[in-house]
Amino acid sequence: MLGISVYFQDLDLHYLQEAKKCGVKYVFTSLQIPEEDYTSLDEKLPLFLNQCQLLELQVVPDISPVTFDKLKIPNQDYQQLKNMGFKALRLDYGFDDYDIIKDLQKDFYLMLNASVIDENYLKDALDHGVDLSKIAVTHNYYPHSDTGLALKDFQEKNKIFQKYGLTIQAFVCGDVLKRFPLYEGLPTVEKHRTVNPYIASIELLQNCCVDDVFIGDSQAEMSTLQYINDYMKENIITIPCYLEKGYEYLYDQNIQVRKDQSESLIRLSLPRKPYIPIQKSTLRKRGYIVMENQLAGRYSGEVSLMKQDLSFISRTNTIGFIHPEYTDVLDFINANTKIRFVRL
Rank of each mutant, 00 (worst) to 15 (best):
L55A: 04
E56Q: 15
V59G: 01
V59E: 01
P61R: 00
D62I: 01
I63Y: 05
S64A: 15
S64W: 00
P65V: 03
V66W: 01
T67K: 03
F68H: 01
F68T: 01
F68V: 01
D69Y: 08
K70R: 15
K70N: 08
L71A: 03
L71Q: 03
K72E: 02
K72Y: 02
I73R: 05
I73D: 06
N75V: 03
N75R: 07
N75W: 09
Q76F: 13
Q76T: 12
Q79G: 15
Q80P: 02
Q80F: 02
L81V: 01
L81P: 08
K82F: 13
N83W: 00
N83R: 15
G85E: 13
G85H: 09
G85A: 06
K87S: 14
K87M: 07
K87H: 14
A88P: 00
A88C: 12
L89T: 00
L89S: 00
R90M: 09
L91C: 04
L91A: 03
D92E: 12
D92S: 07
Y93I: 01
Y93M: 06
D96T: 05
D96G: 09
D97W: 05
D97M: 06
I100R: 14
I100A: 09
K102I: 02
K102A: 06
K102W: 01
K102H: 00
K102F: 01
D103H: 12
D103G: 03
L104M: 06
Q105A: 07
K106I: 04
F108G: 10
F108T: 08
F108M: 03
F108D: 06
Y109I: 08
L110H: 04
M111I: 06
N113P: 11
S115M: 12
V116F: 10
I117C: 10
D118V: 00
E119C: 01
E119P: 06
N120D: 13
L122C: 05
K123A: 08
D124Q: 13
A125K: 11
L126H: 05
H128F: 07
G129F: 04
D131F: 02
L132F: 07
K134Q: 14
A136F: 06
H139K: 03
Y141G: 05
Y141K: 08
P143R: 09
H144A: 13
H144T: 14
H144Q: 14
S145R: 14
S145C: 04
D146K: 12
D146R: 10
D146C: 05
T147R: 02
T147P: 10
T147A: 05
G148V: 02
G148C: 04
G148N: 04
L149D: 09
L149P: 03
A150Y: 08
K152R: 11
F154V: 06
Q155R: 05
Q155V: 11
E156Y: 05
K157N: 14
N158T: 02
N158Y: 03
K159T: 06
I160M: 13
Y164K: 07
Y164M: 06
G165E: 11
G165H: 08
L166F: 10
L166Q: 10
Q169S: 13
Q169A: 13
A170K: 13
F171D: 12
C173M: 08
C173E: 05
D175Q: 12
D175G: 12
D175T: 07
D175Y: 12
V176Y: 07
V176C: 09
L177F: 06
K178H: 14
K178D: 00
K178S: 08
R179T: 14
